[in-house]
């Protein structure tokens, strides 16, 4: 049912200031993605100024007609994540938000994407190894959106591990006999299997030691199956981060 006033919780995944002083925010909620405008949202100190990028907010919004852009009238910030601005974390927060945005183009996947993005951003805020958090949550986001690569058996012949090749186009691992795709270290194949089948905390305990390979696989996989992610080269160049070397 259409309601003129609505209160909802969500994460600000994009935020754009207009010359008028208004702010247009894209918010990912449990029910899906939507956009709203905060009139004069750029004024510091006002409650609309709390519409911080990557933050979980509760907003009251108003629409006169169902197809109108929602006008945000009240914003409450649900916990600050101050570390997301740090140079080694900011590009990774961009990456998770951009991926979540790309995965919700015209579908209402809602709840699970929202929850993984929220956990991922909170994880980035407190982790001593934000790059690992980003890799784990990128694959999880892809998975809940139905884009997970097949990693348990060879994509082409069904053989079990070892599966030392990653077939980007086919969307999964392949065995040594089929040899489809990029060769990857055995450890990276194990990482992917665990990241995509075990609970998140087990993935987060893996060292994911081949970072450049992980980031490069993510970049190529997303580029082919979802969208070119503009934050991905940047995240691979974050100070202290591994470069996305070619596998």
């Amino acid at each position: 049912m259409f309601r003129r006033y609505q209160v909802s919780e969500g994460i600000v995944i994009r935020r754009r200031s207009l010359p008028s002083g208004d702010v247009v925010a894209t918010i990912l909620s449990q029910g899906g993605k939507w956009r709203g405008v905060a009139r004069k949202g750029t004024i510091p100190g006002g409650n609309l100024g709390r519409l911080s990028l990557f933050h979980d907010v509760t907003v009251q919004s108003y629409r006169r007609h169902e197809q109108d852009l929602a006008v945000l009238t009240q914003v409450q910030l649900n916990g600050a994540l101050p570390n997301l601005s740090r140079p080694e974390i900011y590009p990774l927060a961009n990456l998770l938000a951009e991926l979540a945005d790309a995965l919700t183009v015209d579908v209402h996947l809602g709840e699970r994407i929202y929850q993984y993005l929220a956990s991922g951003l909170r994880g980035l805020n407190r982790s001593s190894d934000p790059e690992r958090v980003a890799i784990v949550f990128c694959w999880r986001l892809l998975q809940v959106a139905g884009f997970a690569p097949r990693v348990r058996r060879c994509l082409h012949c069904g053989a079990g591990p070892p599966l030392p090749h990653f077939d980007i186009v086919g969307g999964g691992l392949s065995c040594d006999a089929c040899r489809a795709g990029l060769p990857i270290p055995a450890e990276t194949g194990d990482d992917l299997r665990i990241l995509l089948s075990e609970p998140v905390r087990i993935g987060l305990d893996r060292p994911l030691s081949e970072r450049a390979i992980h980031l490069n696989l993510l970049r190529r996989y997303c580029g082919y199956h979802v969208a070119e992610l503009r934050s991905l080269p940047a995240s691979a160049l974050a100070p202290g981060g591994a470069r996305a070397a070619d596998v």
Binding site: R15, P44, S52, L53, F54, H55, L84, S85, R86, P87, Y90, P239
Partner: peptide, 14 residues
């Protein structure tokens, strides 16, 4: 003092 402005300042600070 937005997240973006803060990130830019921290990057430059480094």
């Amino acid at each position: 003092t937005t997240v973006e402005g803060e990130a830019t300042a921290m990057y430059l600070g480094k």
